[in-house]
């Protein structure tokens, strides 16, 4: 379209361009710059070369955090790729009241991770509901240390992330299912294919691209976990601080007297590079499909 003055588009896009530069491009560049300095939350910022990266190599807490991320990913990936698809199939059919169920299933997604973690943290407490039920049914004699054991805390956080993510991926699958040809389904039904065979041969191939996308989204988000672990461990990172994620380390080093913004930036860069992996895989797979 035409516009009379040459600067009109720049005027309209101006605020967005300022935000693009100040709050997106500059922080990205500055992360790299800071990662070579010893900047502290309270000043400092001398160039220190590769010190931060050397420190990262010998950081046991980072090794733990990376291991936690791998475990997170290995458990979340299959669960959140399959369960939301089944859920989407369940709410796909237009039964009376289905909108209510869809909306309700999405509530954990819109709730803050802090709210969700506080609720579950209470339920998983030594005196909480889950331990109470376990004791009453005789499944456990003493309280199960869901929040104080290094591995159980991690598993609790994983369960929470899975529970909170169900609705999110359900909606993505629901959208994909809307695009799977209904005619194909009918044709298969007329040919005498049962529900299971129709699922395997019609639905599954139809949503395969979405499954790839969903698994990439899950991978990236399980590398970015923060609130669940932070709130369930009350900010401590569990026994010995071993239940931290990379993001929790970044947060820890960005504050207070013990903070180290330079090191936190090096960790940020590391986080970025790790999340790039799944995304590159996606573009590779998409190109192959096309």
């Amino acid at each position: 379209m035409t516009h009379r003055r040459w600067f009109t588009p720049w005027l309209l896009a101006g605020p967005a361009l300022i935000w693009l530069a100040v709050f997106n491009l500059w922080p990205a560049a500055n992360t790299v710059i800071l990662s070579f300095t010893n900047a502290k939350p309270l000043g400092g910022g001398r160039f220190t070369g590769l010190d931060n990266y050397q420190r990262a190599f010998s950081d046991d807490q980072l090794a733990d955090a990376l291991l936690n991320s791998v475990i997170y990913l290995l458990i979340c990936l299959p669960l959140l790729t399959v369960l939301p698809l089944l859920l989407a199939l369940l709410v796909q059919r237009r039964l009376p009241g289905i909108t209510f169920f869809r909306t309700a299933f999405y509530t954990p997604v819109v709730a803050s991770a802090v709210v969700v973690a506080l609720i579950w943290g209470w339920a998983l407490n030594d005196r909480g509901l889950i331990n109470g039920v376990l004791r009453q049914t005789g499944l456990a004699d003493s309280p199960v240390p869901f929040l104080t054991d290094r591995w159980l805390l991690l598993l609790s956080a994983i369960a929470l992330t899975t529970w909170k993510g169900l609705g999110y991926y359900m909606v993505i699958y629901l959208s994909a299912l809307a695009n799977v040809g209904r005619e194909l389904h009918e044709a298969a039904a007329v040919d005498g294919a049962g529900a299971l065979r129709r699922f395997l041969h019609v639905t599954l191939p139809g949503v395969r691209p979405t499954m790839v996308l969903v698994s990439v989204l899950i991978s990236v988000s399980s590398l970015r976990v923060f609130s669940e672990l932070y709130v369930l461990s009350n900010g401590t990172g569990g026994p010995g601080g071993r239940d931290m994620s990379v993001v929790m380390l970044i947060q820890m080093y960005s504050r207070g007297f013990t903070g180290h913004l330079g090191y936190a930036s090096a960790l940020s860069l590391l986080l970025f590079l790790i999340t790039l992996g799944p995304m590159l895989l996606l573009t590779r797979l998409n190109r192959k499909a096309a």
Partner: peptide
């Protein structure tokens, strides 16, 4: 760019 990867430099800004 994941938002978590820029919180530090965002804070500096």
């Amino acid at each position: 760019l994941p938002g978590e990867a820029t919180v530090v430099s965002q804070y500096v800004t």
